[in-house]
Write a protein that binds this DNA or RNA. Structure first.
Length: 479
RNA sequence: GGCCCUAUCGUCUAAUGGUUAGGACAUCAGAUUUUCAAUCUGGUAAUACGGGUCCGAUUCCCGUUGGGGCCA
């Protein structure tokens, strides 16, 4: 139904500043733009807003692009960098000055600060007084040649600016509260709002999908568009992702960089699925969505109006879900680096398939699997099942050991071990067999079941560990 | 401070002018199990408040309060 309202070709973009690693919020904005473009046969662009020379870094640009790619979010045309576009901005700024829609301002920053403070203390909207409004262009040029510092302001019309947001509905601002805001440092260097308007026009952007924190920039951008005779794109402002205290998601209170999640072992499938559901939903009870499915299901109508708190537990749940459902070979490829001390691929795969239900993120394969390679230190008491007597446990371990010794090394696999242990369980209780065997093999209070561990660590190591447990118990008995 | 946005379980959310207000995560209990995880079953838990409009409001309108964002 949207198709009738839209111009012929959907073109959307994201415009990150390369002043930090790919942020969760940027990733979500990118995802929504990407989904909207793909769902509507449109074009998705990336524009790097790197005009802040001090803070912009190439390495951040690389991080942003690499991680978008990793997530599966791809763009369609060549990347645009604002730093390379001075020539493009110049004629527009020139035009605004020539048509007297903008003017040079020579006010000192300190004076402006003082006025602003005064206005705020009176409860007024802080805005420019209009001090330099009527300086004649020739005079202004003269002062500039003489080296006086200046900036360029827009002559803002005193009227209401109204626009339609496809998520929020009609939004109205009183432009007379803005004052004549600054649009450029000089004829080559626009500041944020002007650059955005020119770039979006030049890229023929049809829909601006961005975070809600940009709503208050929108009326200013619309004023500029009007003065430059640009068409107005559609606006879609996304609700913000929030910290648990409901402030805007920030580095201080959360891990915000996609790279960090990636390195911690979050799968792209989980991240995409989770991010998509932060502020959007398909209005059904289904929650597991691949990127492909999101493309077919995505609709502006499903976007939420209010901010959404970032919930790590839900992300972890998604991640565990996708880990469990990934093919073993894929899981191995993604996780093999966590097993650098082991060269045995089959062994690693066995460990992974045994642990995959138990990990919330891939990095836990490493932390949860140490005991396969090195038995942790533990107290003899750990071997005791409930209130059973020490000598019973010791005797059971002894029985297990002698049974395990009888098996051929090549037969030391789960099904054979199961038969043996089930036989012993018949004589004793299952707790009195399984518990001490498991703790002997893992050295842990909580771990996967014993026979699976035994198969993985092998006959020799299993016997060593059982032996060691028996020694521990004996010293408990005597001591 | 000004302006703008916003409000359903703890969290993400569904729904409707008349519903036992639904689902998911989390949580609790039970089943399973030697422990943990996973799995299955069940439970607790929400329409911010005050006014209207209406036979009837969580839904529409106004206000209050709360939360957030932007502006420097």
């Amino acid at each position: 139904m949207f198709k009738n309202l839209l111009p012929s070709k959907i073109r959307v973009r994201i415009a990150p500043s390369p002043t930090g690693q790919l942020h969760f919020g940027t990733a979500r904005t990118a995802l929504f733009n990407f989904l909207f473009a793909r769902a509507n046969n449109g074009v998705f662009l990336v524009r790097i807003e790197d005009t802040d020379v001090e803070r912009s870094k190439k390495e951040f640009e690389k991080d942003i692009l690499d991680n978008l790619t990793w997530l599966g979010i791809s763009w369609d045309e060549e990347i645009i960098r604002q730093s390379e576009r001075k020539k493009i901005y110049h004629p527009y700024i020139k035009k605004l000055l020539e048509k007297d829609l903008a003017y040079y301002c020579f006010c000192q920053a300190e004076d402006l600060e003082a006025i602003k403070a005064e206005q705020m203390s009176r409860g007024e909207a802080p805005r420019y007084s209009g001090h330099c409004q009527s300086i004649k262009p020739e005079i202004a040029q003269e002062r500039i040649t003489q080296g006086e510092k200046s900036i360029i302001r827009l002559r803002v019309p005193q009227k209401n600016i109204e626009f339609e947001d496809l998520v929020k509905g009609k939004i109205t601002y009183d432009a007379s509260l803005f004052g004549d805001f600054v649009i450029a440092k000089n004829e080559d260097e626009p500041i944020y709002n002007l650059a955005v308007v020119i770039d979006d026009f030049e890229s023929r952007i049809s829909h601006i999908i961005r975070g809600e924190d940009h709503i208050s920039n929108t009326p200013k951008q619309i004023i500029i568009q009007k003065m430059l005779d640009f068409p107005r794109p559609h606006y879609i402002h996304l609700p913000l992702i929030l910290n648990p205290d409901r402030s805007k998601m920030s580095k201080r209170k959360n891990i915000t960089s996609i790279k960090d999640y990636r390195e911690d072992g979050f799968l792209k499938e989980a991240l995409i699925n989770f991010i998509a559901f932060l502020g959007w939903n398909p209005k059904t009870n289904t929650e597991i969505f691949s990127l492909e499915k999101l493309i077919t299901e995505f609709s502006i109508k499903g976007i939420q109006k209010a901010g959404a708190v970032f919930n790590l537990q839900k992300l972890e749940w998604f991640n565990n879900y996708y880990i469990k459902h990934l093919p073993l070979e894929t899981l191995f490829e993604l996780s093999k680096d966590y097993f650098q001390n082991c060269q045995d691929k089959e062994k690693i795969k066995k460990i992974i398939s045994l642990q995959k239900d138990r990990v919330k993120k891939l990095s836990e394969f490493k932390t949860n699997s140490k005991f396969f390679f090195e038995l942790p230190n533990y107290e003899g008491q750990l071997l005791i099942w409930k209130n059973s007597p020490n000598d019973l446990i010791l005797n059971n371990l002894k029985k297990i050991k002698s049974e395990f010794e009888k098996i051929n090394n090549s037969d030391f696999v789960f099904i054979n071990l199961k038969k043996i242990i089930d036989g012993l369980v018949g004589e004793s209780g299952s707790g009195e067999i399984y518990w001490p065997l498991r703790t002997a093999l893992s050295g842990l209070k909580e771990s996967p079941p014993p026979l699976e561990i035994a198969e993985i660590i092998g006959q020799k190591e299993s016997l060593i560990r059982i032996e060691q447990a028996m020694e521990l118990l004996k010293s408990e008995l005597t001591g």
